[in-house]
Amino acid sequence: MKKNASFIMMDSALAKSLYDTLKTLEPKSRYSDELLQGLKDLMEGEVATLMLGMTGNGEPFINGADDGIYVGALEIHPKNHKVLCDGAEVSLTPKEFDILYFLAKNKGEIFTKEQIYQAVWAEDYLMADSNIMAFIRKLRKKIEPNPDVPEYILTIWGIGYKFTDRI
């Protein structure tokens, strides 16, 4: 049975160590600034207690590792095929997810349509440029703030596509 809450005491040495570690590591989480401010407030005596909570349903980390990819407002979690954009879950088909994950885990690398097809489709499938283009177009509509001016999945004219390495 899951506990509702757990109260853990922390001294100033631990608070300072956590604060310094977060400042140094700069974790890829939109909540790290809030945690840093909370630890700072705790150390400065502004607050006496700091409460932490998990977003979503608080799924436990397997082996303590999060294999998610975080780029800007986009989060890609391959273990449970979940994509979040600005914290909201984005509904993708399995192939859309596979294409997005393939490009994101190889960010900055340019792939031809054929290379994307070969990486994502294990079984025989009608390979046509328009198939990959249609999937990319659908993906952009779902994850891009402005699909006509994409920030995540970029077209490299005459070659193919790449996932941005600039955000």
Results as ranks from 00 to 15, higher is better:
residue 4 N to A: 12
residue 73 A to M: 09
residue 164 T to A: 04
residue 109 E to M: 11
residue 84 L to K: 05
residue 90 V to N: 04
residue 45 G to W: 12
residue 29 S to W: 07
residue 50 L to Q: 06
residue 55 T to C: 01
residue 36 L to D: 04
residue 51 M to T: 01
residue 78 P to F: 11
residue 156 I to C: 04
residue 161 Y to S: 02
residue 138 K to T: 15
residue 75 E to V: 01
residue 24 T to F: 15
residue 125 Y to A: 02
residue 72 G to D: 07
residue 84 L to F: 11
residue 156 I to E: 14
residue 83 V to C: 10
residue 103 L to I: 03
residue 163 F to Q: 04
residue 124 D to M: 05
residue 61 F to A: 01
residue 19 Y to D: 04
residue 3 K to F: 15
residue 5 A to N: 02
residue 97 F to D: 11
residue 7 F to R: 09
residue 131 N to P: 02
residue 69 I to R: 10
residue 7 F to C: 05
residue 29 S to N: 02
residue 99 I to P: 14
residue 47 V to Q: 14
residue 111 F to H: 05
residue 109 E to N: 14
residue 89 E to Q: 12
residue 132 I to P: 00
residue 47 V to Y: 02
residue 164 T to I: 07
residue 50 L to F: 11
residue 116 I to S: 08
residue 159 I to C: 02
residue 149 V to H: 00
residue 142 K to A: 10
residue 122 A to I: 10
residue 22 L to D: 02
residue 73 A to P: 08
residue 73 A to C: 08
residue 96 E to Q: 13
residue 44 E to T: 07
residue 116 I to D: 07
residue 14 L to T: 01
residue 67 D to W: 11
residue 20 D to A: 06
residue 12 S to M: 13
residue 63 N to Y: 05
residue 56 G to V: 05
residue 129 D to T: 12
residue 8 I to V: 13
residue 89 E to K: 04
residue 81 H to A: 09
residue 102 F to Y: 04
residue 144 E to R: 10
residue 32 S to Q: 14
residue 156 I to G: 08
residue 51 M to Q: 14
residue 106 N to Q: 14
residue 77 H to F: 01
residue 44 E to N: 14
residue 134 A to H: 09
residue 158 G to R: 15
residue 152 Y to A: 11
residue 20 D to R: 01
residue 13 A to R: 14
residue 73 A to L: 12
residue 131 N to R: 13
residue 7 F to L: 06
residue 15 A to R: 07
residue 142 K to Y: 14
residue 94 P to N: 03
residue 136 I to W: 09
residue 67 D to H: 09
residue 35 L to A: 07
residue 157 W to L: 02
residue 164 T to H: 03
residue 158 G to Q: 07
residue 96 E to Y: 08
residue 95 K to L: 11
residue 159 I to Q: 13
residue 138 K to M: 06
residue 41 D to K: 12
residue 64 G to A: 08
residue 131 N to I: 15
residue 99 I to F: 13
residue 72 G to N: 02
residue 114 E to W: 06
residue 98 D to L: 10
residue 50 L to A: 06
residue 46 E to A: 00
residue 69 I to V: 11
residue 138 K to P: 00
